[in-house]
Amino acid sequence: MSSFEALEQLHHQALAELVDAATTEALKGWEDRYLGRKGQITQQARTVGQMPKEARPAFGRRVNEIKTLLEQAYETRLAEIRNAELQTQMTREAIDVTLPGRPMVPGHLHLTIQALRELYDIWAKMGFEVYEAPDVELEAYNFDLLNIPEYHPARDMWDTFWVKGTNDQQAGDRRLLRTHTSPGQIRVMRERYPEPIRVILPGKCYRYEQITVRAEHQFYQMEGLAVGRAITLTDLIGTVTQFSHLYYGADRQVRVRSSYFPFTEPSVEVDTQCILCGGEGCAVCKYTGWLEIAGAGMVHPVVLENGGYDPDVWSGFAFGFGVERPAMQKYGVEDIRLFYGNDLRFLRQF
């Protein structure tokens, strides 16, 4: 057999074996066998030197050709095998993608804080900033300075927790747990005079009353106060209407009724069309079509004066919103005790 014939036979044998190599390991063996440093094709190339001079170019050329062909065939085969192996591997790696993920435990903001933030955001758009006042208050701030003197019938509107040990102090000097956020009105006025004021006063309030699904001894309130040189009742109406449009939706009408609070005059009650029935009448709005959303009014001259603002020059409005109540209406919460009873099954729903 001539060297050419032997070379060709080797070529064919190599191609045949390449087809049989089914794994990357087998392929590696094939490469060593034929194309490696001691591989048969490599060795064929080395025999060129021993050949007669005239045969050398043709044989050398052919060896190189075959080497290139086999290298190409090897690359192709390698790609095939790798792909097949990858496919097998990925098939093996398939998972049930519906299995539960590694548990991350999300935290939750308390519903009250979420409700307050919503209110802060809306009022901030209208230029009202948050002002905070203490929970344990002087009687004077909670009542007297708000035009509610001792034994005045208006005090019946608030059942009060009194602080022990201050009872024998002079009226006004006794301590109590604030029954509303209104004492902050006096505090902010005394602090800010003679600036105009636009603030909201959020905070915990306390009432000495029996705890039921509708009434808690601790709850949040959010009061607002605007004092300026030309503030009117129609400004109050426009402002709370704007609030209602942002909070409850622009399609809800707002109405204002006369009411009574000792620290405002005129005093009004603000209603919005029921969020549930839209005014048709339902259990939430007690079939009136309206929900009370705020008590409000023009700051009483006595209160302005107690805050240091001359009522002949200044005027202002104040309003008070519940914090829990709107959330209860929105989410159908029937028991206010869920808020500060902190049943996490409840709080985690928000």
Partner: peptide
Amino acid sequence: YDRFPGTLIEEPIPPL
């Protein structure tokens, strides 16, 4: 009060 329009405060926003 049902005959009252709604307006907005005309004065500029106080120092923030």
